[in-house]
Design a protein around this nucleic acid. Structure first.
Lengths: 379, 379
DNA sequence: GGACTAAGTTCAAGCATTGAACGAATGAGG
DNA sequence: CCTCATTCGTTCAATGCTTGAACTTAGTCC
């Protein structure tokens, strides 16, 4: 740690606050100075290299009002972008995200990859990315998978056995020539609600169901992953100690009562859209199946709330689609089971992000890192 | 944020690393420089005001080896100290803790305060503190209570209704003329295993049972309290959705199966030491009661591990006493129910701190803050 | 056109750390 | 006893980033 390093840290920290302010919204140097608490002088100084490097652009002066007109700064429309990619049991998806938080392109393709080898899957993903990325500089890529991730490797994925143990981040990185970060789809769906826009506060849990049930936990504005990447495994929270046996070896896991497969089976439907239609028509069996799942999920969520104590639960994925028919049962269980005292209450909200939450989070992983560690942008 | 502030932050940060190194063990300026990565010059500079303020002392030179002998620095033996206090249903306790992590005095007195008013309790506590504190400067006090705390107020405490809603931190602070911080006993027992000595790593859960079951959760070297102070309410994790009704309004809470009162009742004993004796004698009813509690606790802990993913569980309080007869059942449930993958395994260890864990944590709250925010020590 | 206002730039001052040079205190060896 | 080697601790000029004030620029208002 030389003295230079210390001062550099201060500078990088200030650079970060400036970039964060710009992610929030564009602004002139004077405006940014006011918003960040830094001085105009520092802002001129900090933004100069960002403009030189093509990260930011200066818009033409806007003369609204008295005094010298300001020249707003914003992220350069042709600046570097981030890639998000998702590998799932039944589909692949990509999203291209700018540093300003705007989605440039996104795409989902159905794909049954259960029987594909890891290399086949990675080839398809990298083709998909190249197709959509275009000529712009890539900051890096985030890759979402349905399973537990540790150190860039998928260590547990009951539905994608062919990908387990493969260094997916490294392999995809080699194909694309950029850095790739691997993470769990539940964590990334949660991140998408935190970055680049705060859609659910700084502390919340995002719950979604596909094959399993996954919760992405956000504490103090950071995705919480646990020591081994297993955090937030809501699907295997026990609600009946002698209940239905689960594939995980336990019994009475939430997943056995509130998993999407269970809901569909109980409702006598094969696909989510068919279930949705039935619910719309007031089909009693469908409504009952969803309500029962809601009860089980509510018990699991009550346990989760008693342990994490976060103010908000976001329902994502299939749960977002079903939320109108789920919420009542969930809330009813939570009301009776979550410890109360003082004026505590839980918000239960559906995700506004739809089916692109996961890829958006994957891309957000990259833009977030770029803003939080701006040394890469100016170096 | 003036420029001075920025540089001051750097200085305070370095001061903190130096103090942390000194909490670990005493050392000369040269030794501390090597351990912290700072230069000898900086160390002379940083420690000068600490010596002047009587926070540190310079020991006489120790001439072991060649070269100029070093003069080790350590916390001044007559320097300021922290107070820890505990108010519980059946006892009061205090501990006086030095900045070096040494316990100077500690004391527990039996007391049935269930019917006492808040003022009566606070009077007794402040008398007890004054009796043990002696003439030394007090950095502040930590106050532990069995219940949920928010903003210095006890908001939920089924066993101490007279204290609920009272601004305990403020009231005790007025009596003693120092700053008092209020916290939950579970959090503080956990803190005692983190500070001033790392007894269980940087990520762990401390579980103990008295009247209820409380878990103190430590994530990334910080006690995690949640948004409203409700985090870690393991006692009200559900293990049987239609199980025994609980006072909290829910059903099938862990507390109904693994609480100390339940264990004693099932074992046909009135007090912990009597149960202990029965266990030692191999009393089948006692052994069975403890094993059953262990199973229930294991299910709850498995759920907790699937959500928090920490590598270590510390059994404290009564559970530490019973751990020999509890561990097997707990581990057996956890083995089958905690998601595994890769080389993940959980350590289950009894607390080494005995009945003083809570007060020690309460005092540690204060010394920890003093070291982490050293501006108070030099100002 | 002149007064006014606000944006952006320039520049000396301030400050914590650094690294090198220096002084201090001891052991080893002759 | 004296000198050298060794290590500890202090002194001091240099570094580099932010700051605040002064200054320049570019508009509006009357």
């Amino acid at each position: 740690m030389t003295t230079v390093d210390h001062l550099r840290q201060v500078r990088l920290g200030n650079l970060r606050t400036v970039l964060l302010a710009l992610v929030d919204r564009p602004g002139s140097r004077a405006d940014l100075a006011a918003r960040t608490g830094l001085t105009k002088a520092t802002l001129s100084n900090l933004t100069e290299p960002l403009l030189a490097n093509g990260i930011l652009v200066e818009d033409p002066a806007t003369g609204a009002g008295m005094g010298r007109p300001s020249k707003p700064l914003r992220f350069h429309p042709d600046g570097p972008v981030a890639v998000g990619a998702e590998v799932n049991v039944s589909h692949l998806a990509v999203e291209i995200l700018g540093l300003d938080g705007e989605t440039l392109r996104r795409h989902i393709v159905p794909a049954d990859i259960r029987k594909s080898s890891a290399d086949e899957v990675l080839d398809r993903v990298s083709d998909l990315i190249r197709e959509h990325a275009g000529p712009r500089t890539l900051l890096g890529a985030g890759l979402a998978v349905p399973g537990v991730v540790h150190d860039g490797v998928l260590v547990r994925a009951p539905n994608l056995p062919n990908l387990v143990g493969v260094p997916l981040a490294q392999r995809l990185g080699e194909r694309l020539g950029i850095e790739v970060e691997l993470d769990n789809e539940a964590n990334l769906a949660a991140l998408a609600h935190l970055w680049p826009r705060h859609l659910a506060g700084e502390d919340f849990v995002h719950v979604s169901a596909d094959v399993g049930i996954g919760a992405g936990v956000v504490l103090h504005g950071e995705v919480y992953r646990g020591t081994s990447g297993f955090a937030g495994e809501l699907g295997h929270v026990v609600i009946e100690r002698e209940g239905e046996p689960c594939t995980c070896g336990s019994r009475g896991c939430v997943e056995r009562y509130a998993g999407l497969d269970v809901i569909l089976r109980e409702a006598g439907r094969r696909r989510l859209d068919s279930l949705q239609k039935a619910l719309g028509a007031g089909d009693a069996r469908a409504v009952g199946a969803v309500r029962q799942a809601g009860q089980a999920l509510g018990v699991g969520l009550a346990t989760l709330m008693n342990l994490f104590d976060v103010p908000t639960v976001v329902l994502g994925g299939s749960y977002a689609v079903l939320h109108e028919h789920l919420s009542e049962a969930i809330l009813s269980e939570m009301d009776t089971r979550v410890l109360a005292g003082g004026e505590r209450h839980t918000h239960l909200v559906p995700s506004p992000l739809g089916e692109f939450a996961v890829v958006r989070g994957a891309a957000g992983l990259v833009t977030r890192r770029a803003v939080h560690q701006p040394e890469r942008l100016v170096g």
